[in-house]
Amino acid sequence: MTETIIFMGTPDFSVPILEKLHEKHNVALVISQPDKPVGRKRVLTSPPVAEAAKTLDIPLFQPQDIRHDEAVDQIRGMAPDLIITAAYGQILPKALLDIPRLGAVNVHASLLPKHRGGAPIHRAIMEGDAETGVTLMYMAEGLDSGDIIASVKTGITPEDDTGTLHDRLSHLGAKLLNETLPALLAGTNSRVPQNEGQVTISPNISKEDELLDFEDNAEHLFNHIRGLSPWPGAYTEMDGKRLKIYGARLLEKHSQRQPGTIDSVTEDGFTVVAGDHRLIEVTQVQLAGKKRTDASEFTAGRQNLEGTILGGIS
C-alpha cells in the first residue's frame, strides 16, 4: 500500500527535507506560502519549497489562508495518511490537523520544549546555547506543544552563525524524518509529552532585536552578531549612518575606553569595546547604501577610526 503524504513548507530550511522525503515516499501534494514581491523591483517570486515542488514535478497548492474552509476541504478530499510540515509559516487549524489518518507531524529546529516559536535557530545562538537540534513532533493546537516523536542533537561552535547552523539543522531534520518515517507509517513510533516546566519561547526576530547595545558584555554581543548573521543582520550607528555587523571575533583583550568605542584598527577589521571592557573584533560589515564587505576593506582609506564611538539608531 502506498501512503498519501502531504508536505507543507516554505523557506530554504524545508527544501532538503522535502527532497529527502520525495526520494522514497509518495508526496501527493506540496503546500507552500503564496508567491510574494521580492527586492527593490518587487519581482513576484515563488518560495523555495514551491520552486522545489515544481522541479520535482509534485502538485503544488499555495493558499492565502490555510484556515479557509476551501483550503481545508481540498486537503480533506485527498484523504492524506500523513501531513508533514517544516517551517510552513501559518498556524494550522484543528480541522486540518484532524484530517490525516496518522496525524500531522512537524520538523522543528530545536530540542523541544526549548525554543518553541518562529526563530529557534537565531535564538539558540543569541542566547549562547552549547547545543541545539531538531525535534520531530506531533502537531497540536498550542505553539509547538505536541508530543515528541524523535530528536537529534548537534553542538553549537563559536564558528557557527545562523547560516551554518540553519543548513546543518535542515539536513539533520531530513535525515531524522527519513529514519523515523517507517515507524510512523507503521504506527509503532514512540510519543512523549513535552515537559511544560522546561518550555522557552523564541519569537520571530524584531527590529528591536537587531540593534546592538555595546553596554552589553562582549560574549553576549558576539552571540548577538552571529545569531543574526547572515540575516537579518545586527546593526549599530556610525557617523549618523546605519552600520550592519555580520562577522566578529571574541578577543582576550581589554580596554578602559567607553563601551562602543573603536579601540584599534586591525589587519582583519577593527576592535570595539564592550560593556565589560573586553574587546570584540569586527570582521564583516555593511554601511547603509553600500555592499556587504570584509571589515578590512571597510577600514582601508578611512582616517581617524580609532576613538570613534558606535551608537544605537532608532
Score class of each variant (00 low, 15 high):
residue 97 L to D: 14
residue 187 G to L: 05
residue 57 D to V: 04
residue 105 V to D: 04
residue 119 A to L: 11
residue 188 T to L: 06
residue 234 A to P: 03
residue 44 L to I: 13
residue 253 K to D: 11
residue 13 F to R: 06
residue 21 L to M: 06
residue 131 E to T: 13
residue 230 P to G: 08
residue 46 S to C: 03
residue 80 P to Q: 10
residue 96 L to W: 03
residue 169 L to D: 06
residue 208 E to F: 05
residue 6 I to W: 00
residue 44 L to Q: 11
residue 314 S to A: 14
residue 107 V to D: 02
residue 279 L to P: 13
residue 14 S to M: 05
residue 307 G to M: 12
residue 283 T to Q: 06
residue 52 A to G: 08
residue 278 R to H: 11
residue 127 E to D: 15
residue 47 P to I: 06
residue 235 Y to D: 04
residue 77 G to R: 10
residue 162 T to S: 15
residue 72 V to I: 15
residue 228 L to F: 02
residue 265 V to N: 00
residue 101 R to D: 14
residue 56 L to R: 08
residue 159 E to V: 08
residue 189 N to K: 09
residue 95 A to F: 09
residue 197 G to P: 00
residue 180 T to Q: 02
residue 183 A to M: 12
residue 43 V to E: 11
residue 170 S to W: 06
residue 58 I to R: 09
residue 16 P to T: 06
residue 23 E to V: 13
residue 5 I to C: 00
residue 229 S to K: 08
residue 151 S to M: 07
residue 134 V to I: 15
residue 257 R to I: 01
residue 35 D to G: 02
residue 276 D to N: 05
residue 214 F to K: 08
residue 9 G to I: 05
residue 250 L to C: 07
residue 79 A to M: 14
residue 205 I to N: 03
residue 88 Y to S: 07
residue 91 I to A: 04
residue 62 Q to D: 13
residue 22 H to N: 15
residue 170 S to D: 03
residue 223 N to M: 01
residue 215 E to H: 15
residue 154 T to F: 01
residue 308 T to M: 04
residue 229 S to P: 08
residue 186 A to D: 15
residue 132 T to V: 05
residue 3 E to M: 10
residue 230 P to W: 11
residue 220 H to S: 14
residue 7 F to V: 03
residue 169 L to R: 08
residue 18 L to S: 06
residue 256 Q to E: 02
residue 233 G to S: 05
residue 234 A to C: 07
residue 144 D to L: 04
residue 215 E to W: 12
residue 6 I to K: 03
residue 77 G to V: 08
residue 127 E to I: 00
residue 171 H to A: 09
residue 174 A to H: 14
residue 232 P to C: 01
residue 63 P to R: 13
residue 266 T to A: 02
residue 64 Q to G: 09
residue 139 M to H: 13
residue 115 H to P: 01
residue 118 G to F: 07
residue 186 A to P: 10
residue 281 E to G: 00
residue 13 F to Y: 13
residue 54 K to L: 09
residue 112 L to I: 09
residue 59 P to I: 08
residue 152 V to Y: 04
residue 58 I to D: 05
residue 15 V to L: 13
residue 35 D to H: 15
residue 192 V to T: 15
residue 47 P to G: 09
residue 50 A to D: 03
residue 48 P to V: 09
residue 60 L to V: 01
residue 213 D to R: 13
residue 23 E to Q: 15
residue 133 G to T: 11
residue 246 Y to I: 05
residue 214 F to Q: 00
